[in-house]
Every structure is written in C-alpha cells, then in structure tokens.
Amino acid sequence: MTTIDNIEANVIYDSAELSRERLFDLVTKCNVSWAQGELRKLHFMTLFAQSEPKFLPSYDEDTGEIGLKPNNEPTYRVRRIAEDSMQCKIRSVILTELGWTPETPYAPLETILAMLPLDRLQPHPFVAD
C-alpha cells in the first residue's frame, strides 16, 4: 500500500496507464481530500473571524473625525468562502451531509462553526493502492 505521506514511495501515476475505474477512483480520492482541506480552512477562518474585534479605529480625512468603524472583513471572507463552498460540487455534498442548507452561509458564525465539525473533516492518508 502506498500513501501520500510515504515520501520514500513517491508514486506518480501516468493516467494513460490506468484503467478508467482506477483513474476515476484516484481522482475521486484527490477531489475529496482537497475539498476536506478547503472546509478545514473555512473552519479555522471562522474561528479567526470570531476572534477579531467588532470595530476598528478609523480616521475620516474628509471630516477629520476619529472614531470606530465596523470590522466586517473577516466575517465577509467567511461568508464568501461558505457561499463558494455551497457552489462547489464536491464541497456541497460534504456540507449537505453535515446538515448545511443554502441559507447556512448567512447564519451566525457560531452556527457555521458548529456545522463544520473537525472530526468529520480530518485529513486521511491518501491510499493509492
């Protein structure tokens, strides 16, 4: 058995030498591994967005006023990636299995985080044989 973590094996496949079934199996494993990685990123980006302050100091050059402005960027990025994930064929299948609906990307960050359990998104060794 060859795993992607086994550097000594370093197996590289030529798709022309694989049967259609074997090629499909390997491509599917690669796609699922990639999708799980993207969803782990979403999980940790949500944690980051929760830790960021709700407001940032701001200086308005036109009025000369100094005050606070909403810090929407971290939350916006999480929502954008969550929307993109719902549009991705592979990630949306995983998210649907986790109970996501089309409205979930717009839910509070706590809800998004609760619906991305890391135990279901752990990287698995890529088994080639």
Rank of each mutant, 00 (worst) to 15 (best):
T2D: 13
E8F: 13
E8I: 10
N10R: 12
V11R: 14
V11L: 15
D14S: 08
D14Q: 08
S19C: 07
E21H: 12
E21I: 12
R22H: 14
R22I: 08
L23T: 04
D25P: 01
V27S: 10
N31R: 08
N31I: 01
A35T: 00
Q36P: 00
E38Q: 15
R40F: 01
H43W: 03
F48I: 08
Q50A: 09
S51L: 11
E52M: 15
P57T: 09
Y59A: 09
D60R: 02
D62F: 10
T63F: 07
I66D: 10
L68F: 11
L68Q: 13
P70T: 13
N71C: 07
P74Y: 01
P74W: 00
P74E: 01
Y76D: 15
Y76G: 06
Y76M: 12
R80W: 06
I81Q: 13
D84T: 02
S85Y: 02
M86P: 04
Q87T: 11
K89G: 10
I90P: 02
I90E: 05
R91D: 05
S92Q: 09
E97C: 08
G99I: 05
P102N: 05
E103D: 15
T104S: 05
A107G: 03
A107P: 03
L113V: 07
L113P: 04
L118N: 03
D119M: 06
L121Q: 03
L121I: 01
Q122M: 13
H124G: 00
F126K: 06
V127A: 10
A128C: 11
